[in-house]
Design a protein around this nucleic acid. Sequence first.
DNA 1: TGAAAATGACCGACTGGTCGGTCATGCCTG
DNA 2: CAGGCATGACCGACCAGTCGGTCATTTTCA
Lengths: 208, 208
Amino acid sequence: MPKIAASEKDAFYEQRRAELADVALRLWAEKGFDGTSVAAIADAAGISKGTFYLYFASKQALLEDVLRRYTLLPSVQAMVESVADHSLEEAVHTFVRHAWRHLNQHRDLVLLTLRELPSHIEQAQEALQHVLVPTNKLIAQYLEDRLGPERAREISMVIAGRGLVGMILMIFVSQEILGAKRFLPVSDDDIAATIAQVFLHGVVGGAQ
Amino acid sequence: MPKIAASEKDAFYEQRRAELADVALRLWAEKGFDGTSVAAIADAAGISKGTFYLYFASKQALLEDVLRRYTLLPSVQAMVESVADHSLEEAVHTFVRHAWRHLNQHRDLVLLTLRELPSHIEQAQEALQHVLVPTNKLIAQYLEDRLGPERAREISMVIAGRGLVGMILMIFVSQEILGAKRFLPVSDDDIAATIAQVFLHGVVGGAQ
DNA sequence: TGAAAATGACCGACTGGTCGGTCATGCCTG
DNA sequence: CAGGCATGACCGACCAGTCGGTCATTTTCA
């Protein structure tokens, strides 16, 4: 039974860590890393500050765990891979629509990452690089494979890929974070379609 | 002679404030608002913390002064107006090239604004809205005027405009802040041309 | 009852902000 | 011209409060 007890304990331990990470992400997205004290996180999780330090060695360690736990990379990879057998037009539309939904689902993480982006907290920057750089590589590779040299305009697919992500991100930030939604209520699908359309015509060319 | 003395003093006072604002912007871009103490700012400006408070009532007041002092809006407006009599193609190219140079010149302000974007420091968010929203309005208006309903694709020019700014911003952040420049060294003009090309073909359509 | 878990008082470092005191400067007066 | 006097820019020790992190103590529970 010691084994069972131990694994039960481990399960509880892991569950606590997960809950703390969850609470921390929510609070950090609201008030920032520096703006949220460990006491506040512990409080929101219903434990004391002392107990917090039984589960994480430091505030920094919690940040690292949050970023590891919630990295967007796997889902981004899955997203890119899932469109591999669509037509290019379909693929881009699907990608944009999924990315949009993704951003909405992971709003807190996006906020946290944006906020700590140029920060002295290197982990956030690394996390960003771990997501953005590989995503970019995947997209560029995909585009080059699909287009072939003659169909693509003579532009860098790496730059174009970044542009696509930039469009999505900026429009997301405008609509969902800066509150532009109130002034210009457009359905998510329409937005995604617009982005995909601009990108497709811009990059692929000719095909009107 | 008291008048001259007074104006000399005022000039010195204003110069001090300007220097403090300059130093603060630089440090804040590096370490963030919360991450930079008033003492550090005063130190970097070669004065004591006590003296700092002769020139600004609070740290918050300094932030407000920095954002007012360095607002990008006038230059953005000038930028949009300066391309008013070009052809659309030329206008977009020029706009992108200018915007790119602009971001480089105001790197610190861009960093600070991005960093404090979703922050509890409302001023940064306001500043962003004061730049982004009017910029967006100008661009959308310009595009609609130039294109006319039949030439534009059936997409929102507001969304498209945000997409353009998003492309520029994201590629800037990738190249200049995340350090992607090292991996993909492309000239500024090439990048600007690529962005303009994608946008033009994407939005304007047909014209290959 | 004994060990594991949880607590919150406590610590030292640091924050934004204050304030009494110093001293170079330049005017006033003789 | 000289010397005393007033000015105010400047300093940095200091304040109250908050932070991340520790640890002796109490609570819990098998």
